[in-house]
């Protein structure tokens, strides 16, 4: 069997006396798309931050392409991240081109000015941004456009794995649809794998093949999206699936006491 792109084994993260992630394991195959689903406090974002190196695990292993440790730059060209809030995830002083150019220069020192400019145009095309917007500052862009820039920046080093931390949650419905289409296209074009951190089950159905459901730091259920969301086995997953507003849905208060 091939080495998975990402293998997380028995991950644990403790903040002082609070256990955020408690014995979590999952894998992402090359080119795959795994959703980590859960509500606030489930530990899903902490998992994502450990995978990208923003946090250190208390114990457990994260294997990227079978290797436990990579230096900063190698790791960065392997796994990248897109954040939730498009208004805060770009440097407000940097134009789109400068933002992308800085990342490109960092990962490939040999790259000359002209091929860098060509690659910037290529990235802008990939995420569906007008090349003219390259000279714009973030404040002149809409939320959807900023999120496209953030995705372009994350794809710039040609990563094998893209971690999307609630990357469409802050967007308007019509923009969310555009970005979801973009993510489907970008995956088809580059073969990048997704680790999709989200609370939104309809988004999971749309872009992911596998799903891990987390609750209070633990994995309560995992498997194929089609199976887990259509016929959830765990009580928590059943509740989660049942509480999504949909045609004919009647909210009921007898769900829990919390």
């Amino acid at each position: 069997m091939n080495t998975p792109l990402l293998e997380v084994r028995d991950l644990r993260k403790q903040f002082k006396d609070f256990v955020a992630v408690d014995g979590v394991s999952f894998t992402v195959p090359a080119g795959g798309s795994l959703a980590v689903v859960g509500e606030s406090g489930s530990g899903k974002t902490t998992c994502a931050r450990i995978v990208t190196g923003l946090e250190k695990a208390t114990s457990g292993t994260v294997l990227l392409d079978g290797a436990a440790t990579l230096d900063r730059r190698r790791r960065a060209s392997f796994v990248q991240m897109v954040f939730q809030d498009p208004y805060l995830s770009l440097d407000r002083r940097q134009t789109v081109s400068d933002c992308l150019g800085e990342v490109l220069a960092h990962h490939d020192r040999e790259m000359d000015r002209r091929s860098r400019a060509a690659r910037i145009d290529e990235l802008l095309d990939l995420v569906g941004l007008d090349r003219k917007l390259g000279e714009s500052l973030p404040r002149h862009l809409s939320g959807g456009q900023r999120q496209r820039v953030a995705i372009a920046r994350a794809l710039a080093p040609n990563p094998k794995l893209l971690v999307l931390d609630e990357a469409v949650a802050a967007l308007d419905v019509s923009i969310q649809a555009q970005i979801l289409n973009l993510l489907v296209d970008a995956r088809a074009a580059t073969g990048v794998a997704y680790l999709f951190i989200t609370h939104d089950l309809s988004v999971v159905r749309h872009v992911c093949e596998d799903v891990v459901v987390m609750c209070r730091g633990k994995v309560v259920e995992s498997g194929l999206v089609a199976e887990v969301l259509e016929a959830p086995a765990a009580a928590y997953t059943q509740r989660l699936v049942a509480s999504v507003p949909r045609p004919g849905w009647v909210p009921s208060r007898a769900v829990s006491r919390g």
């Binding site: 900063r72 190698r74 960065a76 809030d85 407000r92 960092h106």
Partner: peptide, 13 residues
Amino acid sequence: LPYIEALRVQGFS
């Protein structure tokens, strides 16, 4: 802020 974290994920010093 996430933009600083994004730069860290990019492997900048």
